[in-house]
Write a protein that binds this DNA or RNA. Structure first.
Lengths: 130, 130
DNA sequence: TGCCTCTATGCGCACATTCGCATATATGCT
DNA sequence: AGCATATATGCGAATGTGCGCATAGAGGCA
């Protein structure tokens, strides 16, 4: 990553910054704990950091950082009240995206079951987690 | 990351493997080049590796790896014909997901403009890339 | 067979992410 | 003020990601 091809050297597509921005959102979603927290916020509307920490079972500092990632991506808002900070979804489209992802996951799993045996790369069953 | 809290030590949410799987999909989307390729596949239906490489302007080996990421996540399918390998979207839900992501991006940007000046963490303008 | 093209993979380097601990900062309570 | 609670941040270690070069393997063609 010395310098070239981060932004393609040739034929820069007109919408590169937009792609970067979308990738940032995707990155924010790219962690199980963050997905879980988003789902909880979608369900409950508002949660303080310590509640979310208990939910995902990680250290508070870790959860605080996860929330910062979501905030920078523009997915959540934070509201300070007393000593606590309450996080909530910044807008409803987050729910739509999560729904679409879930729908895709469903479709992928369905398709993988029907293509069983011919498997050549889409990963197998996913029972034993790391 | 010795062992704990990857899967939360306490209260493992019932759907942890599903969250991992969803995160895998999000990770696949979390790179501008991969998003660009997906958009192209959505538009064109099918592209060989060398065409996609030209599109994103990166080394073929890099693009090949990007495509492997998309394949493992279950987003694309590959079809070999002669020397070339043609990639295409694995199912239509991928298009829906991309649409939802775009919609969310739109909403986030809109909201950030309306909250301008009160800015305290959602990143500013986004002109200078990394 | 030999040569060329297309794609995938081994490798190493640079950089990013994630984690928990220790610590700073803010707020509340007495 | 002094102490407890709630979040955020500095730090270092372990791990993951992205990249291109070099190379391997598969297929077409003379």
């Amino acid at each position: 990553m010395s310098q070239p091809a981060n932004q393609p050297a040739s034929i820069p597509p007109p919408a590169w910054p937009r792609l970067q921005r979308t990738a940032l959102i995707a990155k924010a979603l790219a962690h199980p704990s963050r997905l879980l927290m988003l789902a909880e916020l979608l369900r409950a509307g508002e949660r303080c950091v310590c509640e979310l920490a208990a939910l995902v079972g990680a250290d508070i500092s870790t959860v605080s950082r996860h929330l910062a990632v979501l905030r920078v991506a523009g997915l959540v808002r934070d509201r300070k009240q007393g000593q606590q900070v309450f996080y909530s979804l910044r807008n409803p489209e987050v729910g739509l995206l999560l729904g679409a992802a879930d729908q895709l996951l469903e479709a992928v799993v369905r398709e993988q079951q029907s293509t069983l045996g011919a498997g050549s790369g889409t990963l197998g069953d996913f029972s034993g987690g790391r």
